[in-house]
Design a protein around this nucleic acid. Sequence first.
DNA 1: CGGACTGTTGATTCGAATCAAAACCGGTGG
DNA 2: CCACCGGTTTTGATTCGAATCAACAGTCCG
Lengths: 242, 242
Amino acid sequence: MIANLAATLLTKLTVSNRLDGEDVQAISRLPIRLRHLQAQEMIIADGAQSEDCCLIAEGFAFRAKSTIDGSRQVLSLHIPGEVPDLQSLHLHIMDHDLMALTPCTVGFIAHDALKALNTARPSVAAAFWRESLIDAAIFREWIVNVGRRSATARMAHLFVEMHQRLKAVGRTHEGEFAFPITQADLADCLGLSTVHVNRVLQTLRRDGVLAVNRADYHILDMDKMSDIGGFDPTYLHQDPSL
Amino acid sequence: MIANLAATLLTKLTVSNRLDGEDVQAISRLPIRLRHLQAQEMIIADGAQSEDCCLIAEGFAFRAKSTIDGSRQVLSLHIPGEVPDLQSLHLHIMDHDLMALTPCTVGFIAHDALKALNTARPSVAAAFWRESLIDAAIFREWIVNVGRRSATARMAHLFVEMHQRLKAVGRTHEGEFAFPITQADLADCLGLSTVHVNRVLQTLRRDGVLAVNRADYHILDMDKMSDIGGFDPTYLHQDPSL
DNA sequence: CGGACTGTTGATTCGAATCAAAACCGGTGG
DNA sequence: CCACCGGTTTTGATTCGAATCAACAGTCCG
């Protein structure tokens, strides 16, 4: 079990980082507390302080922030192998919510254990730091997305990003991937209304670039979809040598 | 000179981090190469690889990304004491532009020197990591800003944020601060058109919450401005103990 | 079967973009 | 000292993308 969890983490870490055998060993030895979560279950709430980090083993999670007038903005989507609250290692108060998007299996790793690992293995610390910087790079792209792209481009960009990230951990099959998100949550990712999300989805389907069947997304024409979204993968920093 | 640059960096670092005497010494000994920049001068371009980080000593800088259709989104604004391209330490290719907003004095610090410092003094490494996480926290808030807030709220939020950050390094006087930005650049920060920025500015002035005289911004009613922007300072993580 | 989400459709409104032009400002040079 | 210039700010008229409001259909599940 725990071995499986660590393996998921390692799969993700090695997308963007080089780790040697000792690093892998040390990570595999991390004590991880398993937990199962329901869809929409809160993992850590805005304002809370936590003593551990959450590793997603199976399912999707998201981070979000609510404004006073009740509207919500999703800040990031997280896939298996990611640690969406890695920042809590150094920022001790949450400035947003972390929630399960779908039913999830997650592992909790104590801050103390992670800190000890970082001290013992600087290369692992560097990898985690780099992961948190990639996180920030994705935030930057999302600022561009909601700030300057049309509704259609935004949505296309998000789909290509999710495909690219899932592909890197082997969770796609020729443009197809599981993406279990409601249109309402999509709207909160993109800064749009659900009604408009629904309409934009229809045009993407009508134009033959996307097929959706429940949670099964299929990007039928990746080049066209990338074009529509103005997608450039540089910001994902998936090449460990760069 | 170099001592002055390091002092500016230390002022900023100690807003959010605890550093001991040895840390301060080590930072003060960093070799820094001085440079003067004109307004709108490129510091590092999207796609470039750099060997050093840029410390702002005087003036303002910004990071921005351009979409294919030519529009631009500003991702962050940077004030004296900040290192806007700290991420280049671990992400070796730029995924956005870094430019001077105003005439700037900046110091360049070699990656090698910073990496040596991080190895020698883990507490400094932790401080820099934390700084980069605060950077990410600000990105998150900006996603909310452009994604879910009205034009007026966005602008108010940005003004309060800038005031709060400048205040922390002693660059405000009772709601007044120098903020030398054109309405066009403001528009690119907020995902708005310049025309609309101009109109929103007028309403803020008319409502008596803001006075602007060239680059001199004066928030006349901080509570009201914070209210309009829905501002909550938690995300700035200015308390080193949290 | 009924109820609660989720997705879909249509009609209407509204905030902000766009287009276009004028006013303003600081600097430069004749 | 004033005419001129480029950049910035301001104003008005119009258009447009997306939100809102409201209702209805589909699907899952107890």
